[in-house]
């Protein structure tokens, strides 16, 4: 072998060594596939590592991780799957890539409606789907329920994000659970007829549109208000609206969760359960509330000052499993009323 080809061979060997995965199931790690954005959960993971010395490895993506887990099968390095809504959690369970966890602390920390009766998924934070209304153009009390959004008196005055987005689909699914498919269909058609513009942008963009005078009311997740109030450019948007917790006289405000599930193949099961317990504990729950203004699921964990300023409210106690069940139907309803076009 002459020198250049030997160098080439060495380079090739190095390259192969670099590419071949070294096992991620060594001591003291836990591997997470996360649908949640890094900046929201990294602080919690860092706190966990400081406390336990267990390193948290993460892959973040907004799609495809369940499929990756499914294909990797029994050899998958992933221990936990973290999601930003109930839909993705139940998808993982249905794909058969999760396993049940029976842990007394988890059950004590997380109220029953925010976890799977079969112990596969656990909610970690909850978020309220609230209505925001223009301070200038909507009298306080003029709108008080999701049903009102479909009332013809709001024609041309409502903004929402895409009807196919997980948060909107979950709300529609809750409407199906409460009123049945036919009524929910009618409601969604009414809401669509009231829209001021084609659904676009995220929840923040709807508040911005109210400030700009494009519309007068919108439906958003509550924590976006906190995020906007704390951003120098966006504080003005938040200041232009009043917050309404819908359906206080009836079944309460629609809630969703961000959550976690243990994978079926979890190579670091003990560490993974430690992390689950940590995330449901006081410290992490409080961090969630302070950083992203989400409601802690654990009862008794103090709310951040901002959450307190929103006031107490009646949350819908409809089980999230029930919401998840109607998701596909809800998504199809959005197609049927041509919500996004």
């Amino acid at each position: 072998m002459n020198t250049p080809s030997r160098t080439l061979a060495a380079a090739a060997a190095a390259l192969i060594a670099a590419f071949v995965a070294f096992p991620a199931h060594s001591q003291g790690v836990v591997n997470v596939y996360s649908y949640r954005q890094p900046f929201l959960i990294t602080p919690m993971f860092e706190a966990f590592t400081r406390e336990t010395g267990i390193k948290v490895n993460v892959v973040h993506a907004k799609k495809g991780l369940i499929e990756r887990l499914e294909q990797e099968g029994a050899n998958s390095p992933a221990d936990l799957i973290v999601t930003a809504d109930i839909g993705r959690l139940t998808d993982a369970v249905q794909a058969g890539v999760t396993q049940a966890v029976t842990n007394a602390t988890l059950e004590a920390n997380i109220p029953a409606q925010y976890r799977d009766p079969e112990h596969h998924w656990f909610g970690l934070t909850s978020r309220a789907r609230i209505i925001v209304a223009s301070k200038d153009r909507v009298a306080p009390g003029a709108i008080s329920s999701y049903e009102d959004l479909a009332d013809p008196k709001w024609k041309g005055r409502v903004c929402t994000r895409s009807g196919k987005h997980a948060y909107m689909v979950a709300l529609t699914a809750a409407m199906i659970a409460h009123h049945g498919e036919a009524k929910a269909h009618e409601w969604l058609r009414g809401l669509k007829a009231n829209l001021a513009r084609r659904p676009q942008g995220n929840d923040r963009a709807q508040v911005k549109a109210i400030m700009e005078g494009v519309c007068d009311v919108a439906v958003i997740n509550h924590y976006y208000m906190g995020n906007m109030m704390n951003d120098k450019n966006q504080a003005a948007w938040a200041a232009s609206v009043n917050i309404v917790f819908p359906n206080q006289q009836t079944y309460g405000t629609h809630m969703n969760v961000s959550g976690i599930a243990l994978t079926k193949s979890a190579p670091n099961k003990d560490n993974a359960i430690k992390l689950m317990v940590f995330l449901s504990g006081d410290r992490a729950q409080q961090l969630y509330a302070e950083q992203n203004f989400e409601y802690p699921v654990k009862p008794g964990v103090p709310w951040s000052a901002l959450l307190q300023s929103f006031g107490a409210y009646k949350a819908d106690d409809l089980g999230l499993g029930e919401v998840a069940k109607h998701r596909k139907t809800a998504s199809k309803l959005a197609d049927k009323v041509a919500f996004d076009t």
């Binding site: 590419f19 995965a21 199931h25 892959v59 050899n75």
Partner: peptide, 15 residues
Amino acid sequence: ISTGLLLSGTVFALL
């Protein structure tokens, strides 16, 4: 012996 995942989840898969 178990070789686990050799290529999945590596830079090679990305490449």
